[in-house]
């Protein structure tokens, strides 16, 4: 109950300090494998943004935008994982990856493992740089269950 109270409090007394500073921005990458891979091998960006959106899609997204809103939740989870790591954040990210990632066709030999990592993108001087800030332990890939 105490925890719930502290989760509720910022809703009832909000700070409203939107975009106070432009912080490093997270990207979630994932990989599926049945045999161990090298550190940098096999990573895919989760939900890469499209090159462009049509006017119709923009209008539709005013009313129906579940995937994007879920991606914003992933941004929050990634930031939480860096500031205050909890099992909840890790489980939530794995849940989404299991739901949306498709197994390769045909399925590789042996059981598949799923792993994710977080890349934080920032500006340093005039350069945009990326750094790997978190790599999860692999878990058995269960797909949409």
């Amino acid at each position: 109950m105490v925890r719930l109270f502290f989760l509720l409090l910022p809703g009832l007394i909000p700070s409203w300090e939107f975009f106070k500073a432009i912080e490093p921005s997270p990207r979630v990458q994932w990989r599926l494998f049945s045999i161990p891979l090298e550190d940098g091998e096999g990573w895919n960006e989760f939900r890469p943004r499209p090159q462009r959106l049509s006017l119709l899609t923009i209008l539709r997204r005013l009313f129906w935008n579940p995937r994007w809103n879920d991606s914003l939740y992933l941004v929050s989870l990634s930031e939480r994982l860096m500031l205050n790591p909890t099992q909840h954040s890790v489980d939530e990210i794995f849940d989404r990856l299991n739901f949306y990632v498709s197994a390769p066709d045909p399925v590789e030999e042996g059981p598949l493992n799923l792993q994710f990592r977080l890349i934080f993108v920032r500006r340093e001087g005039e350069q945009i740089t990326e750094s790997i800030t978190y790599i999860s332990e692999p878990r058995s890939f269960r797909g949409r269950t």
């Binding site: 975009f19 990207r27 943004r49 499209p50 920032r122």
Partner: peptide, 11 residues
């Protein structure tokens, strides 16, 4: 925000 944040909806 436009250059590297997670917010712009398209590339």
């Amino acid at each position: 925000v436009f250059a590297f944040s997670a917010y712009p909806v398209s590339e």
